[in-house]
Design a protein around this nucleic acid. Sequence first.
DNA 1: TTTTCAATGCGTAAATTTTACACAAAGAAA
DNA 2: TTTCTTTGTGTAAAATTTACGCATTGAAAA
Lengths: 254, 254
Amino acid sequence: MEHSLKEFFDRALKEVSLDCTVFGFHEGELKVLLLRWKGIDGWSLPGGHILLDESVDDAANRILTQRTGLDDVFLQQFYTFGNVNRYVYHPEKELLEKMETTFGKGFFDGIIFRRVVSIGYLALVEFDQVQPTPDWFTDECRWWSLADVPHLLFDHNEMIDRALKALRQRIRNQPVGINLLPEKFTMPELQRLYETILGRQFDRRNFQKLLMSYDILERLDEKRIGAANKSPYLYRFVKEKYERAAAEGVSFTM
Amino acid sequence: MEHSLKEFFDRALKEVSLDCTVFGFHEGELKVLLLRWKGIDGWSLPGGHILLDESVDDAANRILTQRTGLDDVFLQQFYTFGNVNRYVYHPEKELLEKMETTFGKGFFDGIIFRRVVSIGYLALVEFDQVQPTPDWFTDECRWWSLADVPHLLFDHNEMIDRALKALRQRIRNQPVGINLLPEKFTMPELQRLYETILGRQFDRRNFQKLLMSYDILERLDEKRIGAANKSPYLYRFVKEKYERAAAEGVSFTM
DNA sequence: TTTTCAATGCGTAAATTTTACACAAAGAAA
DNA sequence: TTTCTTTGTGTAAAATTTACGCATTGAAAA
Protein backbone atom coordinates (compact mmCIF):
# COMPACT_ATOMS: atom_id res chain seq x y z
CA MET A 1 0.00 0.00 0.00
CA GLU A 2 1.12 3.50 -0.76
CA HIS A 3 2.41 5.75 1.95
CA SER A 4 0.22 8.64 0.94
CA LEU A 5 -3.22 8.93 -0.45
CA LYS A 6 -1.81 11.08 -3.19
CA GLU A 7 0.21 8.20 -4.58
CA PHE A 8 -2.91 6.08 -4.64
CA PHE A 9 -5.10 8.71 -6.27
CA ASP A 10 -2.51 9.27 -8.96
CA ARG A 11 -3.76 5.88 -10.14
CA ALA A 12 -7.43 6.13 -9.21
CA LEU A 13 -10.55 8.21 -9.62
CA LYS A 14 -11.14 10.63 -6.79
CA GLU A 15 -14.64 11.88 -7.38
CA VAL A 16 -16.20 8.45 -7.82
CA SER A 17 -16.22 5.67 -5.29
CA LEU A 18 -17.94 2.34 -5.06
CA ASP A 19 -19.62 0.67 -2.09
CA CYS A 20 -20.72 -2.94 -1.80
CA THR A 21 -23.70 -4.11 0.18
CA VAL A 22 -22.72 -7.70 0.84
CA PHE A 23 -25.58 -9.95 1.88
CA GLY A 24 -25.21 -13.35 3.44
CA PHE A 25 -27.77 -15.78 4.85
CA HIS A 26 -27.13 -17.53 8.15
CA GLU A 27 -29.34 -19.16 10.76
CA GLY A 28 -32.45 -18.00 8.99
CA GLU A 29 -31.40 -14.39 8.93
CA LEU A 30 -30.16 -12.02 6.29
CA LYS A 31 -26.80 -10.52 7.27
CA VAL A 32 -24.75 -7.69 5.91
CA LEU A 33 -20.98 -7.31 6.05
CA LEU A 34 -19.70 -4.14 7.71
CA LEU A 35 -16.29 -2.70 8.53
CA ARG A 36 -15.09 -0.64 11.45
CA TRP A 37 -12.68 2.04 10.38
CA LYS A 38 -9.28 2.38 11.90
CA GLY A 39 -8.86 5.63 13.73
CA ILE A 40 -12.44 6.74 13.78
CA ASP A 41 -15.14 4.99 15.63
CA GLY A 42 -17.65 4.23 12.91
CA TRP A 43 -18.94 1.44 10.74
CA SER A 44 -19.47 1.49 7.00
CA LEU A 45 -19.96 -0.69 3.96
CA PRO A 46 -16.84 -2.02 2.28
CA GLY A 47 -15.97 0.30 -0.53
CA GLY A 48 -13.14 1.83 -2.42
CA HIS A 49 -12.03 3.79 -5.41
CA ILE A 50 -11.72 2.74 -9.02
CA LEU A 51 -8.30 2.44 -10.62
CA LEU A 52 -7.75 4.33 -13.82
CA ASP A 53 -7.25 1.22 -15.91
CA GLU A 54 -10.09 -0.76 -14.39
CA SER A 55 -13.77 -0.81 -15.27
CA VAL A 56 -16.26 -0.13 -12.51
CA ASP A 57 -17.41 -3.76 -12.54
CA ASP A 58 -13.81 -4.94 -12.26
CA ALA A 59 -13.26 -2.60 -9.37
CA ALA A 60 -16.29 -4.00 -7.57
CA ASN A 61 -14.98 -7.53 -8.00
CA ARG A 62 -11.52 -6.59 -6.85
CA ILE A 63 -12.81 -4.84 -3.76
CA LEU A 64 -15.12 -7.70 -2.90
CA THR A 65 -12.38 -10.28 -3.28
CA GLN A 66 -10.05 -8.29 -1.09
CA ARG A 67 -12.74 -8.02 1.53
CA THR A 68 -14.40 -11.41 1.61
CA GLY A 69 -11.88 -13.74 0.05
CA LEU A 70 -14.59 -14.72 -2.44
CA ASP A 71 -14.42 -14.78 -6.19
CA ASP A 72 -17.05 -15.18 -8.85
CA VAL A 73 -20.05 -14.14 -6.81
CA PHE A 74 -23.30 -12.39 -7.67
CA LEU A 75 -22.36 -8.74 -7.94
CA GLN A 76 -24.53 -6.14 -9.63
CA GLN A 77 -24.77 -2.41 -9.64
CA PHE A 78 -28.08 -1.20 -8.22
CA TYR A 79 -27.96 2.58 -7.77
CA THR A 80 -25.61 5.53 -7.83
CA PHE A 81 -25.69 7.86 -4.86
CA GLY A 82 -25.09 11.49 -5.61
CA ASN A 83 -26.65 13.71 -2.99
CA VAL A 84 -24.67 16.82 -2.13
CA ASN A 85 -24.94 16.01 1.54
CA ARG A 86 -23.91 12.37 1.33
CA TYR A 87 -21.21 13.12 3.90
CA VAL A 88 -23.43 14.98 6.27
CA TYR A 89 -23.71 12.04 8.62
CA HIS A 90 -20.09 12.41 9.60
CA PRO A 91 -18.58 15.71 8.56
CA GLU A 92 -15.63 15.08 6.37
CA LYS A 93 -13.39 17.57 8.09
CA GLU A 94 -13.70 15.94 11.47
CA LEU A 95 -13.16 12.57 9.83
CA LEU A 96 -10.00 13.70 8.10
CA GLU A 97 -8.60 15.11 11.32
CA LYS A 98 -9.17 11.88 13.15
CA MET A 99 -7.56 9.92 10.36
CA GLU A 100 -4.51 12.14 10.36
CA THR A 101 -4.16 11.35 14.03
CA THR A 102 -4.10 7.66 13.18
CA PHE A 103 -2.10 7.65 9.98
CA GLY A 104 0.18 10.57 10.61
CA LYS A 105 0.24 14.22 9.74
CA GLY A 106 0.62 14.80 6.05
CA PHE A 107 -1.33 11.70 5.11
CA PHE A 108 -3.77 13.78 3.12
CA ASP A 109 -1.21 16.16 1.63
CA GLY A 110 -1.93 16.98 -1.97
CA ILE A 111 -5.42 15.55 -1.77
CA ILE A 112 -8.62 17.52 -1.55
CA PHE A 113 -11.93 15.70 -1.67
CA ARG A 114 -14.38 18.13 -3.10
CA ARG A 115 -17.19 15.70 -3.39
CA VAL A 116 -17.64 11.99 -4.07
CA VAL A 117 -20.39 10.22 -5.96
CA SER A 118 -20.69 6.55 -5.07
CA ILE A 119 -21.84 3.62 -7.15
CA GLY A 120 -23.76 1.07 -5.09
CA TYR A 121 -23.17 -2.64 -5.74
CA LEU A 122 -25.21 -5.52 -4.42
CA ALA A 123 -23.29 -8.69 -3.60
CA LEU A 124 -24.73 -12.07 -2.61
CA VAL A 125 -22.33 -14.50 -1.03
CA GLU A 126 -22.35 -17.90 0.66
CA PHE A 127 -22.02 -17.05 4.31
CA ASP A 128 -19.92 -20.06 5.22
CA GLN A 129 -17.43 -19.51 2.43
CA VAL A 130 -16.64 -15.94 3.42
CA GLN A 131 -13.46 -15.12 5.27
CA PRO A 132 -13.95 -11.55 6.35
CA THR A 133 -10.52 -9.98 6.13
CA PRO A 134 -9.92 -6.59 7.70
CA ASP A 135 -7.35 -4.62 5.78
CA TRP A 136 -4.97 -1.81 6.35
CA PHE A 137 -7.76 0.72 6.77
CA THR A 138 -9.99 -1.48 8.85
CA ASP A 139 -10.02 -2.54 12.46
CA GLU A 140 -12.74 -5.11 12.20
CA CYS A 141 -14.94 -6.82 9.67
CA ARG A 142 -18.18 -8.29 10.91
CA TRP A 143 -21.53 -9.73 9.83
CA TRP A 144 -24.55 -7.88 11.19
CA SER A 145 -28.15 -8.95 11.21
CA LEU A 146 -30.16 -6.47 9.20
CA ALA A 147 -32.24 -5.55 12.20
CA ASP A 148 -29.17 -4.71 14.28
CA VAL A 149 -27.27 -2.58 11.77
CA PRO A 150 -25.99 0.47 13.65
CA HIS A 151 -25.86 4.04 12.47
CA LEU A 152 -23.30 3.99 9.67
CA LEU A 153 -20.94 6.56 8.21
CA PHE A 154 -22.03 8.68 5.27
CA ASP A 155 -25.24 7.58 3.57
CA HIS A 156 -24.55 3.89 4.02
CA ASN A 157 -27.75 3.16 5.90
CA GLU A 158 -29.68 4.48 2.93
CA MET A 159 -27.53 2.31 0.67
CA ILE A 160 -28.51 -0.82 2.56
CA ASP A 161 -32.17 0.14 2.36
CA ARG A 162 -31.97 0.54 -1.37
CA ALA A 163 -29.89 -2.59 -1.78
CA LEU A 164 -32.53 -4.60 0.03
CA LYS A 165 -35.22 -3.16 -2.21
CA ALA A 166 -33.13 -4.03 -5.25
CA LEU A 167 -32.64 -7.56 -3.93
CA ARG A 168 -36.39 -7.94 -3.43
CA GLN A 169 -36.95 -6.90 -7.01
CA ARG A 170 -34.28 -9.14 -8.42
CA ILE A 171 -35.36 -12.23 -6.54
CA ARG A 172 -38.56 -12.09 -8.58
CA ASN A 173 -36.73 -12.50 -11.89
CA GLN A 174 -33.56 -14.31 -11.00
CA PRO A 175 -33.18 -17.56 -9.11
CA VAL A 176 -31.06 -15.85 -6.51
CA GLY A 177 -30.81 -18.74 -4.07
CA ILE A 178 -27.71 -20.27 -5.62
CA ASN A 179 -25.68 -17.26 -4.54
CA LEU A 180 -26.70 -17.26 -0.90
CA LEU A 181 -26.99 -20.93 -0.02
CA PRO A 182 -24.37 -23.65 0.25
CA GLU A 183 -24.06 -26.23 -2.51
CA LYS A 184 -26.63 -28.53 -0.92
CA PHE A 185 -29.69 -27.36 0.94
CA THR A 186 -33.18 -28.46 1.87
CA MET A 187 -36.40 -27.09 0.46
CA PRO A 188 -37.42 -25.56 3.80
CA GLU A 189 -34.06 -23.78 3.92
CA LEU A 190 -34.60 -22.35 0.46
CA GLN A 191 -38.10 -21.31 1.44
CA ARG A 192 -36.84 -19.59 4.57
CA LEU A 193 -34.40 -17.63 2.42
CA TYR A 194 -37.20 -16.40 0.20
CA GLU A 195 -39.37 -15.60 3.18
CA THR A 196 -36.60 -13.66 4.85
CA ILE A 197 -35.77 -11.59 1.79
CA LEU A 198 -39.37 -10.81 0.93
CA GLY A 199 -40.63 -10.58 4.51
CA ARG A 200 -43.59 -12.88 3.86
CA GLN A 201 -44.62 -16.47 4.49
CA PHE A 202 -45.41 -18.96 1.77
CA ASP A 203 -47.30 -22.16 1.64
CA ARG A 204 -44.79 -24.99 1.83
CA ARG A 205 -46.42 -27.09 -0.85
CA ASN A 206 -46.99 -24.29 -3.32
CA PHE A 207 -43.46 -23.01 -2.82
CA GLN A 208 -41.97 -26.37 -3.65
CA LYS A 209 -44.21 -26.73 -6.68
CA LEU A 210 -43.21 -23.34 -8.06
CA LEU A 211 -39.49 -23.72 -7.46
CA MET A 212 -39.43 -27.17 -9.02
CA SER A 213 -41.36 -25.88 -12.03
CA TYR A 214 -38.37 -23.72 -12.98
CA ASP A 215 -36.48 -26.93 -13.69
CA ILE A 216 -33.24 -25.71 -12.16
CA LEU A 217 -33.14 -27.82 -9.02
CA GLU A 218 -32.14 -31.41 -8.60
CA ARG A 219 -33.23 -33.53 -5.67
CA LEU A 220 -30.39 -35.65 -4.32
CA ASP A 221 -30.64 -39.07 -2.72
CA GLU A 222 -29.31 -37.59 0.49
CA LYS A 223 -31.28 -36.24 3.40
CA ARG A 224 -30.40 -33.86 6.16
CA ILE A 225 -30.49 -35.89 9.36
CA GLY A 226 -30.24 -34.81 12.97
CA ALA A 227 -33.34 -32.75 13.63
CA ALA A 228 -36.26 -34.08 15.65
CA ASN A 229 -38.46 -34.56 12.64
CA LYS A 230 -38.73 -36.26 9.30
CA SER A 231 -35.45 -35.80 7.43
CA PRO A 232 -35.83 -33.51 4.46
CA TYR A 233 -34.22 -34.21 1.11
CA LEU A 234 -31.23 -32.22 -0.04
CA TYR A 235 -31.37 -30.27 -3.29
CA ARG A 236 -28.86 -28.48 -5.43
CA PHE A 237 -28.92 -26.13 -8.39
CA VAL A 238 -28.11 -27.72 -11.75
CA LYS A 239 -25.59 -25.25 -13.05
CA GLU A 240 -26.36 -25.33 -16.78
CA LYS A 241 -30.09 -25.19 -16.23
CA TYR A 242 -29.68 -22.50 -13.66
CA GLU A 243 -27.68 -20.34 -16.03
CA ARG A 244 -30.22 -20.65 -18.78
CA ALA A 245 -32.98 -19.66 -16.35
CA ALA A 246 -30.96 -16.72 -15.06
CA ALA A 247 -30.41 -15.46 -18.58
CA GLU A 248 -34.02 -15.85 -19.66
CA GLY A 249 -35.40 -14.75 -16.32
CA VAL A 250 -37.83 -16.64 -14.14
CA SER A 251 -40.88 -15.19 -12.52
CA PHE A 252 -41.41 -15.75 -8.86
CA THR A 253 -45.11 -15.01 -8.63
CA MET A 254 -45.91 -15.63 -5.00
CA MET B 1 -21.02 30.57 -20.18
CA GLU B 2 -17.45 30.52 -19.09
CA HIS B 3 -14.68 31.23 -21.53
CA SER B 4 -12.66 28.22 -20.52
CA LEU B 5 -13.51 24.77 -19.43
CA LYS B 6 -11.31 25.28 -16.43
CA GLU B 7 -13.59 27.97 -15.08
CA PHE B 8 -16.53 25.62 -15.44
CA PHE B 9 -14.82 22.65 -13.84
CA ASP B 10 -13.78 24.76 -10.89
CA ARG B 11 -17.47 24.51 -10.07
CA ALA B 12 -18.23 21.01 -11.31
CA LEU B 13 -17.21 17.38 -11.04
CA LYS B 14 -14.82 16.28 -13.75
CA GLU B 15 -14.70 12.54 -13.39
CA VAL B 16 -18.48 12.07 -13.35
CA SER B 17 -20.90 13.04 -16.05
CA LEU B 18 -24.53 12.42 -16.66
CA ASP B 19 -26.34 11.53 -19.86
CA CYS B 20 -30.08 11.59 -20.50
CA THR B 21 -31.88 9.24 -22.82
CA VAL B 22 -34.95 11.31 -23.63
CA PHE B 23 -37.83 9.33 -25.07
CA GLY B 24 -40.84 10.83 -26.79
CA PHE B 25 -43.76 9.22 -28.59
CA HIS B 26 -44.94 10.59 -31.92
CA GLU B 27 -46.91 9.17 -34.82
CA GLY B 28 -46.90 5.74 -33.27
CA GLU B 29 -43.14 5.65 -32.89
CA LEU B 30 -40.75 5.92 -30.01
CA LYS B 31 -38.25 8.73 -30.57
CA VAL B 32 -35.07 9.72 -28.84
CA LEU B 33 -33.59 13.21 -28.61
CA LEU B 34 -30.05 13.58 -29.93
CA LEU B 35 -27.60 16.46 -30.34
CA ARG B 36 -25.02 17.17 -32.96
CA TRP B 37 -21.87 18.59 -31.49
CA LYS B 38 -20.41 21.83 -32.65
CA GLY B 39 -17.02 21.38 -34.26
CA ILE B 40 -17.04 17.64 -34.55
CA ASP B 41 -19.33 15.72 -36.76
CA GLY B 42 -21.02 13.40 -34.33
CA TRP B 43 -24.26 12.85 -32.49
CA SER B 44 -24.71 12.08 -28.82
CA LEU B 45 -27.20 12.04 -26.01
CA PRO B 46 -27.71 15.30 -24.13
CA GLY B 47 -25.48 15.22 -21.10
CA GLY B 48 -23.39 17.33 -18.86
CA HIS B 49 -21.45 17.58 -15.67
CA ILE B 50 -22.69 17.97 -12.13
CA LEU B 51 -22.13 21.19 -10.23
CA LEU B 52 -20.46 20.94 -6.87
CA ASP B 53 -23.48 22.21 -4.97
CA GLU B 54 -26.04 20.19 -6.87
CA SER B 55 -27.25 16.65 -6.35
CA VAL B 56 -27.08 14.26 -9.26
CA ASP B 57 -30.86 14.25 -9.58
CA ASP B 58 -30.92 18.05 -9.61
CA ALA B 59 -28.26 18.08 -12.28
CA ALA B 60 -30.32 15.73 -14.43
CA ASN B 61 -33.33 18.01 -14.10
CA ARG B 62 -31.32 21.09 -14.89
CA ILE B 63 -29.75 19.55 -17.96
CA LEU B 64 -33.07 18.28 -19.20
CA THR B 65 -34.77 21.63 -18.74
CA GLN B 66 -31.99 23.40 -20.57
CA ARG B 67 -32.28 20.93 -23.39
CA THR B 68 -35.98 20.39 -23.86
CA GLY B 69 -37.61 23.38 -22.21
CA LEU B 70 -39.55 20.93 -20.06
CA ASP B 71 -39.89 20.84 -16.31
CA ASP B 72 -41.29 18.27 -13.94
CA VAL B 73 -40.99 15.24 -16.20
CA PHE B 74 -40.37 11.57 -15.53
CA LEU B 75 -36.64 11.34 -14.93
CA GLN B 76 -34.96 8.40 -13.29
CA GLN B 77 -31.49 7.03 -13.05
CA PHE B 78 -31.17 3.63 -14.70
CA TYR B 79 -27.50 2.62 -14.89
CA THR B 80 -24.00 3.97 -14.41
CA PHE B 81 -21.53 3.40 -17.20
CA GLY B 82 -17.97 2.83 -16.15
CA ASN B 83 -16.07 0.87 -18.75
CA VAL B 84 -12.46 1.88 -19.20
CA ASN B 85 -12.97 2.11 -22.92
CA ARG B 86 -16.15 4.17 -22.88
CA TYR B 87 -14.43 6.68 -25.12
CA VAL B 88 -13.11 4.16 -27.55
CA TYR B 89 -15.77 4.94 -30.09
CA HIS B 90 -14.29 8.34 -30.72
CA PRO B 91 -10.83 8.72 -29.33
CA GLU B 92 -10.73 11.55 -26.91
CA LYS B 93 -7.53 13.03 -28.28
CA GLU B 94 -8.89 13.47 -31.75
CA LEU B 95 -12.07 14.90 -30.30
CA LEU B 96 -10.21 17.42 -28.21
CA GLU B 97 -8.17 18.54 -31.17
CA LYS B 98 -11.24 19.13 -33.28
CA MET B 99 -12.87 21.05 -30.47
CA GLU B 100 -9.85 23.26 -30.04
CA THR B 101 -10.17 24.09 -33.72
CA THR B 102 -13.74 25.20 -33.11
CA PHE B 103 -13.44 26.90 -29.75
CA GLY B 104 -9.93 28.22 -30.00
CA LYS B 105 -6.53 27.09 -28.89
CA GLY B 106 -6.19 27.03 -25.16
CA PHE B 107 -9.80 26.06 -24.59
CA PHE B 108 -8.72 23.00 -22.69
CA ASP B 109 -5.85 24.61 -20.81
CA GLY B 110 -5.61 23.45 -17.23
CA ILE B 111 -7.98 20.58 -17.87
CA ILE B 112 -7.03 16.96 -18.25
CA PHE B 113 -9.74 14.36 -18.55
CA ARG B 114 -8.28 11.20 -17.20
CA ARG B 115 -11.46 9.23 -17.34
CA VAL B 116 -15.18 9.89 -16.96
CA VAL B 117 -17.84 7.68 -15.46
CA SER B 118 -21.34 8.55 -16.62
CA ILE B 119 -24.65 8.19 -14.86
CA GLY B 120 -27.46 7.28 -17.25
CA TYR B 121 -30.86 8.89 -16.80
CA LEU B 122 -34.09 7.90 -18.48
CA ALA B 123 -36.48 10.75 -19.34
CA LEU B 124 -40.02 10.45 -20.66
CA VAL B 125 -41.50 13.60 -22.16
CA GLU B 126 -44.58 14.70 -24.05
CA PHE B 127 -43.34 15.02 -27.58
CA ASP B 128 -45.52 18.00 -28.50
CA GLN B 129 -44.50 19.99 -25.46
CA VAL B 130 -40.79 19.75 -26.13
CA GLN B 131 -38.90 22.64 -27.63
CA PRO B 132 -35.54 21.19 -28.51
CA THR B 133 -33.06 23.96 -27.87
CA PRO B 134 -29.52 23.64 -29.14
CA ASP B 135 -27.06 25.35 -26.84
CA TRP B 136 -23.64 26.81 -27.03
CA PHE B 137 -22.01 23.41 -27.53
CA THR B 138 -24.57 22.11 -29.95
CA ASP B 139 -25.26 22.64 -33.61
CA GLU B 140 -28.52 20.84 -33.79
CA CYS B 141 -31.03 19.07 -31.59
CA ARG B 142 -33.28 16.51 -33.22
CA TRP B 143 -35.71 13.69 -32.55
CA TRP B 144 -34.72 10.36 -34.07
CA SER B 145 -36.80 7.25 -34.50
CA LEU B 146 -35.22 4.45 -32.53
CA ALA B 147 -34.67 2.40 -35.65
CA ASP B 148 -32.78 5.22 -37.37
CA VAL B 149 -30.42 6.21 -34.56
CA PRO B 150 -26.98 6.64 -36.11
CA HIS B 151 -23.64 5.61 -34.68
CA LEU B 152 -23.20 7.86 -31.66
CA LEU B 153 -20.20 9.23 -29.83
CA PHE B 154 -18.76 7.36 -26.87
CA ASP B 155 -20.91 4.51 -25.55
CA HIS B 156 -24.17 6.30 -26.18
CA ASN B 157 -25.64 3.61 -28.41
CA GLU B 158 -25.21 1.18 -25.55
CA MET B 159 -26.85 3.71 -23.24
CA ILE B 160 -29.95 3.85 -25.42
CA ASP B 161 -30.13 0.06 -25.50
CA ARG B 162 -30.02 -0.12 -21.76
CA ALA B 163 -32.43 2.77 -21.36
CA LEU B 164 -34.96 0.99 -23.52
CA LYS B 165 -34.57 -2.16 -21.47
CA ALA B 166 -35.08 -0.13 -18.32
CA LEU B 167 -38.16 1.49 -19.80
CA ARG B 168 -39.57 -1.94 -20.68
CA GLN B 169 -39.08 -3.04 -17.12
CA ARG B 170 -40.56 0.08 -15.60
CA ILE B 171 -43.65 0.11 -17.77
CA ARG B 172 -44.63 -3.12 -16.06
CA ASN B 173 -44.76 -1.51 -12.61
CA GLN B 174 -45.49 2.13 -13.30
CA PRO B 175 -48.32 3.61 -15.34
CA VAL B 176 -45.83 5.28 -17.61
CA GLY B 177 -48.29 6.57 -20.21
CA ILE B 178 -48.98 9.85 -18.47
CA ASN B 179 -45.43 10.97 -19.15
CA LEU B 180 -45.40 10.26 -22.87
CA LEU B 181 -48.90 11.16 -23.98
CA PRO B 182 -50.69 14.49 -24.17
CA GLU B 183 -53.30 15.34 -21.56
CA LYS B 184 -56.11 13.71 -23.53
CA PHE B 185 -55.72 10.58 -25.60
CA THR B 186 -57.70 7.66 -26.93
CA MET B 187 -57.48 4.11 -25.76
CA PRO B 188 -56.01 2.93 -29.07
CA GLU B 189 -53.31 5.60 -28.75
CA LEU B 190 -52.43 4.38 -25.27
CA GLN B 191 -52.39 0.83 -26.52
CA ARG B 192 -50.09 1.72 -29.38
CA LEU B 193 -47.69 3.30 -26.91
CA TYR B 194 -47.54 0.10 -24.89
CA GLU B 195 -47.17 -1.99 -28.02
CA THR B 196 -44.36 0.20 -29.27
CA ILE B 197 -42.42 0.13 -26.04
CA LEU B 198 -42.80 -3.58 -25.50
CA GLY B 199 -42.64 -4.58 -29.15
CA ARG B 200 -45.74 -6.77 -28.92
CA GLN B 201 -49.40 -6.64 -29.89
CA PHE B 202 -52.25 -6.83 -27.42
CA ASP B 203 -55.87 -7.68 -27.67
CA ARG B 204 -57.82 -4.43 -27.77
CA ARG B 205 -60.54 -5.57 -25.36
CA ASN B 206 -58.21 -7.14 -22.83
CA PHE B 207 -55.95 -4.12 -22.92
CA GLN B 208 -58.80 -1.75 -22.16
CA LYS B 209 -60.05 -4.01 -19.38
CA LEU B 210 -56.64 -4.16 -17.71
CA LEU B 211 -55.86 -0.46 -17.96
CA MET B 212 -59.28 0.52 -16.62
CA SER B 213 -58.86 -1.93 -13.74
CA TYR B 214 -56.02 0.20 -12.38
CA ASP B 215 -58.59 2.91 -11.70
CA ILE B 216 -56.35 5.75 -12.83
CA LEU B 217 -58.05 6.69 -16.09
CA GLU B 218 -61.16 8.76 -16.63
CA ARG B 219 -63.22 8.55 -19.78
CA LEU B 220 -64.30 11.99 -20.98
CA ASP B 221 -67.48 12.91 -22.80
CA GLU B 222 -65.39 13.97 -25.77
CA LYS B 223 -64.42 11.93 -28.77
CA ARG B 224 -61.64 12.27 -31.25
CA ILE B 225 -63.28 13.09 -34.57
CA GLY B 226 -61.88 13.32 -38.05
CA ALA B 227 -60.80 9.83 -38.92
CA ALA B 228 -62.76 7.64 -41.31
CA ASN B 229 -64.12 5.43 -38.58
CA LYS B 230 -66.09 5.37 -35.40
CA SER B 231 -64.86 8.19 -33.14
CA PRO B 232 -63.06 6.88 -30.10
CA TYR B 233 -63.56 8.36 -26.66
CA LEU B 234 -60.87 10.50 -25.08
CA TYR B 235 -59.37 9.55 -21.74
CA ARG B 236 -57.12 11.26 -19.27
CA PHE B 237 -55.16 10.27 -16.19
CA VAL B 238 -56.74 11.27 -12.88
CA LYS B 239 -53.76 12.82 -11.19
CA GLU B 240 -54.39 11.85 -7.56
CA LYS B 241 -55.30 8.31 -8.44
CA TYR B 242 -52.39 8.08 -10.81
CA GLU B 243 -49.96 9.15 -8.12
CA ARG B 244 -51.25 6.63 -5.65
CA ALA B 245 -50.89 3.90 -8.27
CA ALA B 246 -47.39 5.04 -9.18
CA ALA B 247 -46.33 4.95 -5.54
CA GLU B 248 -47.85 1.53 -4.83
CA GLY B 249 -46.91 0.13 -8.21
CA VAL B 250 -49.23 -1.47 -10.72
CA SER B 251 -48.60 -4.69 -12.54
CA PHE B 252 -48.97 -4.76 -16.27
CA THR B 253 -49.30 -8.48 -16.81
CA MET B 254 -49.79 -8.80 -20.55
C1' DT C 1 -39.11 -50.20 23.60
C1' DT C 2 -43.00 -47.43 22.91
C1' DT C 3 -45.14 -43.12 22.53
C1' DT C 4 -45.13 -38.37 21.39
C1' DC C 5 -44.30 -34.45 18.77
C1' DA C 6 -42.91 -31.51 15.16
C1' DA C 7 -41.79 -31.16 10.45
C1' DT C 8 -41.78 -33.25 5.81
C1' DG C 9 -43.78 -35.31 1.33
C1' DC C 10 -47.36 -35.43 -1.69
C1' DG C 11 -52.03 -34.30 -4.66
C1' DT C 12 -56.53 -32.31 -5.52
C1' DA C 13 -60.30 -28.87 -5.51
C1' DA C 14 -61.59 -23.98 -5.52
C1' DA C 15 -60.73 -19.33 -6.72
C1' DT C 16 -58.75 -16.08 -9.46
C1' DT C 17 -56.54 -14.32 -13.41
C1' DT C 18 -55.50 -14.34 -18.14
C1' DT C 19 -56.58 -15.30 -22.78
C1' DA C 20 -59.46 -15.91 -26.76
C1' DC C 21 -62.95 -14.49 -29.49
C1' DA C 22 -67.62 -12.06 -32.60
C1' DC C 23 -70.91 -8.81 -33.77
C1' DA C 24 -73.18 -4.33 -33.80
C1' DA C 25 -72.40 0.66 -34.42
C1' DA C 26 -70.13 4.97 -35.85
C1' DG C 27 -68.20 8.12 -39.14
C1' DA C 28 -65.71 9.59 -43.13
C1' DA C 29 -65.02 8.60 -47.96
C1' DA C 30 -66.44 6.75 -52.21
C1' DT D 1 -76.56 5.47 -50.20
C1' DT D 2 -73.03 2.28 -49.90
C1' DT D 3 -68.53 0.93 -48.46
C1' DC D 4 -64.81 0.50 -45.54
C1' DT D 5 -62.23 0.83 -41.47
C1' DT D 6 -62.14 1.17 -36.63
C1' DT D 7 -64.42 1.34 -32.21
C1' DG D 8 -67.35 -0.45 -28.10
C1' DT D 9 -68.78 -4.19 -25.49
C1' DG D 10 -69.29 -9.19 -22.77
C1' DT D 11 -68.74 -14.09 -22.06
C1' DA D 12 -66.66 -18.64 -22.12
C1' DA D 13 -62.43 -21.40 -21.97
C1' DA D 14 -57.82 -21.98 -20.39
C1' DA D 15 -54.23 -21.31 -17.34
C1' DT D 16 -52.44 -20.00 -13.12
C1' DT D 17 -52.49 -19.31 -8.30
C1' DT D 18 -54.19 -20.34 -3.86
C1' DA D 19 -56.00 -23.17 -0.21
C1' DC D 20 -55.89 -27.12 2.26
C1' DG D 21 -55.50 -32.63 4.77
C1' DC D 22 -53.39 -36.73 5.76
C1' DA D 23 -49.91 -40.16 5.99
C1' DT D 24 -44.97 -40.56 7.07
C1' DT D 25 -40.52 -39.89 9.19
C1' DG D 26 -37.16 -39.45 12.81
C1' DA D 27 -35.47 -37.69 17.08
C1' DA D 28 -36.77 -36.97 21.79
C1' DA D 29 -39.44 -38.06 25.72
C1' DA D 30 -41.68 -41.35 28.50
